[in-house]
Each structure stands twice: as structure tokens, then as C-alpha cells.
Design a protein around this nucleic acid. Structure first.
Length: 492
RNA sequence: GACCCCAUCGUCUAGAGGCCUAGGACGCCGGGUUUUCAUCCCGGCAACACGGGUUCGACUCCCGUUGGGGUCGCCA
């Protein structure tokens, strides 16, 4: 395809959410696949609700996802600026053109009047339509109103009849009847062009070839096509992708769980996971492949394989995918991410990392395959670096019996004289001990694991011991033994 | 309510008239490996919304019903 140019045009009135991220992804993938350009444009014409914080956030999240833009804020390009708030003057001449050609007209109806019209038709249970009474105002009437400084908006003359047929790349043929549409407003009475106008002007000026966006825009498309034609712009191709729903099939919202990219990032999801998951939500490569790299995605992505129906977001599958990516992750990358989490949560200091680099490495690698979210690393490694704060009371209760204390004592006696503390060696001696006492290995492992980690699950116990070291093991076993004994005597 | 879109296991999806006894994945259940958890490996449960057509034949095409979603702003 020649000169593919697509864009993602978020409005900075909130954080980048899952749906927006997927729209951005599909645009990005399409551009990369076709060898085209991906443009980022900020739609901040709603000055009331737009903030620069949100804008910064969106850019940051897009970069985190690796969805870099060829043109847009901070990189600029042939069609700068890419913030609509800086393009107001550009829109002016096009508004004039619409007025001059008679395709748009001044409307002096006040909000109150319109409200009344709306109320009246609601009372009669009729679908509301603007009366179009300003459409036929004479030149004198217009001048008269202007002279009196009556506030006006500008409306587009929508054809009274006929239909408009869209060839959507995903949905196929979609047709609308013009008489279902109102003469919509393109310039507010306070001044300022509205979304439908600016989106068309910008897409045309920025030479956007394909408009790929959420299905919620499908109903707006006829209005926009009308504007393209009114301004003699070339109409781009449209592709409306299905929306993302929550588990209950209602629109995805906070009550379903995390919805913004930032939240997922903070929870410990990887950008690769998000990309992979989002790509497969509404698109498939072949029906069997579940895990695809960015390169594979770029190579195979096509709008023709985007499904038409809305998809429910599945947190469980997302988590599974994240675990898979973590397991397959390069060791150094994992260590890097893991230590960052530990630093952030104040589990270790950067001093400590400097002085114990090898130990930190070892600990990271030992938990790598157990982690589903990067943030899990914190509670899965805390006991290596810090003393166990308090043993869980319920578990203390569970382990409070004579058998357990006996096992701990035997174990203690076994390791006390040891001079080397190697995982393989430890395993050999402990197996030997169990055999001797005619017990299962697990009879020793479970109480000791609890003593050393304060948890019921951990990576291989012998490796844990090797890392903790002789003295620390002795201390913790002593501490738990004493704790259990106290508990048992208190019960008597 | 009007208009538009959609409809395969609980969820994500494959399926473009006979390849379907409907495939894969997550989840779930059972089993194996492991000192525990996770991993890994086996196995299992589970779907074409409904009703009419068209056709020798329909998950696939058409119509209707139902259900879900979207849009009806001087928001984007």
C-alpha cells in the first residue's frame, strides 16, 4: 500500500486505558506492517478537561509499551504542531470556507431554546431533531443578530434525504440515512471548532490514509465524511475495531479491575505481555498461536483478521501470559527489574546491592520461575534480605506439636556442626537423616521451610539454605523452636 | 425510544457450504514429576443464542426473533 499514514489521537482527559492502548497498537502494527508512518496527535480541544499531566502520562505509557511515533509531540514532523490546542488558527480558514460555500450556517438558538425543543420532543416521545430554524435565516436577519451581539454557533447543512454508505475495512458495508442526522454544530458559541470538524481537518492535512479507531466512532463517521466532501478533502479508509468489555460484558470500567496501562505497569505486568495480550484481543494470527513477539506481530498483522465482535478482558489469561514472559525472560533483564522492585519497596538498599551483587543475583534467579508479576518478587524474596518480622499465628498454631519441635531439633543438631553449606551436600545429609529416622523428607522440609522463610512455599529448600547461610539458618530454626515451645506450654 | 454494529466452550479465539465427531489457548477438574509452590508433562469437562428459509448438504448464505454493545452533546 502506498503512503500509509495512520494516527492515534487520544484526548488528554484521563489516563491511557486498555481500549486506547489497543487502538494505538493496531494503528502502530498496521503502519509497521505496511511500511507506513504512525502519527500521534493530541486532541485537547476540550480545554476544560484536558491537562498536561494526562498528556505526559499518555506519552509515557505509549513509550513504555514501545509504541513509538514517527510524528507527534516531542518528535514533531512535517505537519507540526500535533496538539490541536495549537492549531486553532488553522481551523479558522476551513470554517470560513464552509460558510462561504453555504454548506454551513450561523445558528443563533440559545442553549435554553434548544433545551426546550429537546424537552418538547421528549414529551411527545419523538426522537429529538433540531428544528433547523436558523438554516433559512435571511442575510438581514443574520446581520441583525450579529449587530445585537447574539451568541452563535455554526452548523453544517446535512442532506435532508438520501443515504451514505461506508465501506469499513473491518465491518464491511454500513449504511446510514441522512434524515437520522441533525445539522450538527462545528463551531461552539464560545468559539472553537468541535471534534468532528477538527478531526477531519487534521486527518486531511496530516494526510492520514487510514482511520483505525474504536467502534464507538462508527456512528460519527457519516458526519465526518460529509465534512471531507464539503471541504473537498480526500476521504480516508476507515476501520472500526470492536470495543473491549468487562467480564460481565458491560463496558470495561474500574469496577472490573485495572483499566489503565499505568495500573498494569505498577502491578508488575511487562510491556511485552500487554502488547501480546491486547493484540490477541480482537485479532488472531492463525487460531493456534498464543504467544507472539513484536516482530511476529508486525510481520503478520492485518486488519482483515480483526474480529467484528467485542471482546471481554480476561485478567486470568493476562496473568498467565505475564508469567510465561517472565520465565522466558533473559536473566539479566529479570535481575535488573527485580532489584528495581526491591529498591522501590525498600527491601534492600543500593548499598547492599553493590556489596552483595552475587547474592542478589542468585536470589533473583531462584525465584524467577515462580513469579507471575514482577511486583511479586518483593514478598517472595523479602525473607532472604530481612529477618522474619513475625511468624503467622495460624501457622504457628498449625506447627505447634511435639513432632515438629522434635524434627526441628534433630535438624538443628544435624546442621549445627556443618562447616560447608552447599545445596547438594545439604540435600544428601538431610535425606540421610530422614532415612535414618525412617521419616519422609517432607517431615523435615516443611517445618524447616516455615522456620526459614515464614511461608509454606518457597523455592527449593536446600538452595534457600545455601543462600541464607549457616548462621542465619541456625538462628531462625532456634527462634521458631522457641516460639513453638512457648505456644505449646501456653496452651497447657 | 430511534439509528448503527455484533452473536462459536465460562473467557480469548480457529472456522470463509461438505475437511466439524467443531480445532487451539486461559480458567476449571483429575493424574504424573517435585521437599512445598510455581513450572513442566498427560488426561477430562465445556460452545455453533433461537426460529424460519436457500441448498443434495449449513457453524458457515438470507430473513426474523432474542440478547449484548455503541451512537444519539456547543465531550472527544
Amino acid at each position: 500500500m502506498e503512503n500509509v499514514r495512520v494516527r492515534f489521537a487520544p484526548s488528554p482527559t484521563g489516563f491511557l486505558h486498555i481500549g486506547g492502548a489497543r487502538t494505538a497498537l493496531f494503528n502502530w502494527l498496521f503502519a509497521k506492517h505496511e511500511g507506513g508512518k504512525f502519527i500521534l496527535r493530541i486532541e485537547d480541544t476540550d480545554t476544560e478537561r484536558s491537562t498536561s499531566e494526562y498528556q505526559m502520562n499518555i506519552l509515557e505509557d505509549l513509550r513504555w509499551l514501545g509504541l513509538d511515533w514517527d510524528e507527534g509531540p516531542e518528535v514533531e514532523g512535517r505537519f507540526s504542531p500535533y496538539l490541536q490546542s495549537q492549531r486553532f488558527s488553522i481551523y479558522q480558514s476551513y470554517i470560513q470556507r464552509l460558510l462561504d460555500s453555504g454548506q454551513a450556517y450561523y445558528c443563533f438558538c440559545s442553549m435554553q431554546e434548544l433545551e426546550k425543543e429537546r424537552f418538547e420532543s421528549e414529551k411527545k416521545k419523538l426522537p429529538y431533531h433540531y428544528s433547523k430554524k436558523c438554516r433559512t435565516l435571511s442575510q438581514q436577519e443574520i446581520e441583525h443578530q450579529m449587530k445585537n451581539n447574539v451568541a452563535f454557533s455554526i452548523r453544517i447543512k446535512v442532506p435532508n434525504e438520501g443515504q451514505l454508505v461506508i465501506q469499513d475495512m473491518i465491518r464491511g458495508t454500513v449504511s446510514f440515512q441522512w434524515n437520522d442526522f441533525d445539522d450538527f454544530i462545528v463551531v461552539r458559541s464560545q468559539g472553537g471548532a468541535t471534534y468532528n470538524l477538527v478531526v477531519v481537518i487534521d486527518d486531511a492535512l496530516m494526510k492520514i490514509s487510514h482511520v483505525i479507531r474504536g467502534e464507538d466512532h462508527l456512528s460519527n463517521t457519516p458526519k465526518q465524511i460529509l465534512l471531507y466532501q464539503a471541504l473537498s478533502f480526500e476521504v480516508p479508509r476507515f476501520a472500526h475495531i470492536p470495543l473491549i468489555l468487562g467480564a460481565d460484558k458491560s463496558r470495561l470500567s474500574k469496577r472490573h479491575g485495572a483499566v489503565s496501562i499505568g495500573e498494569f505497569r505498577r502491578q508488575g505486568y511487562l510491556p511485552e505481555t500487554m502488547i501480546n495480550y491486547l493484540a490477541h484481543l480482537g485479532w488472531s494470527m492463525d487460531g493456534t498461536t498464543e504467544v507472539f513477539s513484536r516482530e511476529t506481530l508486525v510481520k503478520h498483522f492485518s486488519l482483515t483478521r480483526v474480529i467484528k465482535s467485542a471482546a471481554c478482558f480476561d485478567y486470568a489469561k493476562l496473568q498467565w501470559l505475564n508469567g510465561k514472559y517472565i520465565r522466558e525472560m533473559d536473566k539479566d533483564t529479570f535481575i535488573h527489574l527485580g532489584t528495581a522492585v526491591l529498591l522501590e519497596k525498600n527491601i534492600i538498599s543500593s548499598e547492599f546491592i553493590k556489596n552483595h551483587e552475587n547474592q542478589v543475583r542468585k536470589i533473583m534467579l531462584i525465584v524467577k520461575d515462580h513469579v507471575k508479576l514482577i511486583s511479586d518478587i518483593a514478598h517472595q524474596t523479602d525473607y532472604f534480605f530481612n529477618p522474619i518480622e513475625n511468624y503467622n499465628l495460624e501457622l504457628i498454631e498449625k506447627f505447634s506439636n511435639i513432632e515438629v519441635t522434635k524434627r526441628l531439633e534433630e535438624f538443628f543438631d544435624l546442621i549445627l556442626p556443618m562447616t560447608s553449606f552447599d545445596a547438594a551436600e545439604l540435600e544428601k545429609s538431610i535425606r540421610h537423616l530422614a532415612d535414618q529416622k525412617k521419616l519422609k523428607l517432607a517431615d523435615y522440609v516443611h517445618p524447616v521451610r516455615f522456620a526459614l522463610t515464614g511461608q509454606l512455599t518457597s523455592p527449593g529448600l536446600f538452595e534457600v539454605m545455601e543462600i541464607l547461610g549457616h548462621d542465619s539458618c541456625i538462628d531462625r530454626i532456634t527462634r521458631l523452636s522457641n516460639g513453638l515451645k512457648t505456644q505449646m506450654s501456653a496452651k497447657k
